[in-house]
């Protein structure tokens, strides 16, 4: 691979004059990799994801997405990058007056996909996540878990290069949770780089994906395949994803 999907080099984040949330974080995500992002509540998982969808600029350090230094991007460049990134927000961020179908359709409409294709694709995907009977439902009439599945469908509908899922199984039972994880794995097999933030340890332990662990504002990469070799994430280097 000539380029990395994500590269963090000595990244720190601080909200206003508040405490440092992330300190000197360096890691890379290779194309097609799958990572869990774990850490206690308030550790900074959502903040880390924000950096990866241009929702937050680092206080210091370098963030590169798809080989481009974020600091060098202008507002005009944002849409093209964001269209390559699918995000499941922790608080869903569904658009309240749009139906489930229209919410899911948004990334396609924004990208100018034909209306006929949009309806078919979105209907199929919503059926797949078990919402076939709720295509026209407004978000407020859906349960928390149903809203979460709409949010997931919206994040994956456009086959992003990078999928960032923030606590995507927090509101569903284990059966549905696993089904959603399989959806992410399917997408990953098709080439999407996936990051799933969660504090559901039992879910994480069912898989052998590498883990980005946020502890005390720092990041460590843990590889379950080589449990002894948990190590602090060194300065970014293309070799950090490990054996391919």
């Amino acid at each position: 691979m000539g380029w990395l999907v994500v590269l963090f080099d000595q990244v720190s984040v601080q909200y206003g004059a508040g405490p440092q949330i992330l300190r000197d974080i360096s890691f890379t995500l290779a194309p097609g990799s799958f990572h869990f992002l774990v850490g206690r509540s308030g550790a900074g998982k959502s903040s880390l994801l924000k950096l990866m969808y241009l929702g937050l600029r680092p206080s210091s350090g370098t963030v590169s997405l798809f080989g481009r230094d974020v600091a060098s991007l202008s507002r005009r460049d944002f849409p093209a990058i964001r269209r390559r990134v699918g995000v499941v927000f922790q608080d869903f961020r569904l658009i309240p007056h749009l139906s489930a179908l229209d919410n899911v359709a948004l990334p396609l409409r924004v990208a100018g996909v034909r209306e006929a294709d949009i309806r078919r694709h979105c209907g199929e995907l919503l059926s797949w996540v078990g919402l076939a009977d709720h295509l026209g439902a407004l978000p407020e009439t859906l349960s928390g878990g149903q809203q979460q599945r709409v949010a997931i469908a919206r994040a994956v509908i456009a086959r992003p290069n990078l999928l960032l899922a923030d606590e995507p199984t927090g509101n569903v039972d284990d059966v549905i949770g696993l089904r959603l994880m399989y959806l992410f794995e399917e997408l990953n097999k098709l080439g999407t780089t996936v990051v799933v933030a969660t504090h559901n340890d039992s879910l994480v332990s069912r898989f052998t994906h590498r883990q980005l662990r946020l502890e005390q504002n720092s990041l460590r990469v843990f590889d379950p395949a080589q449990p002894g070799r948990s190590r602090p994430a060194a300065a970014a280097s293309p070799s950090s994803p490990g054996p391919a």
Binding site: Y53, L54, A80, R82, V85, I95
Partner: peptide
Amino acid sequence: VIEIVHLIGAT
């Protein structure tokens, strides 16, 4: 809503 639409990649 505009913020969400922007995050999704709208120009």
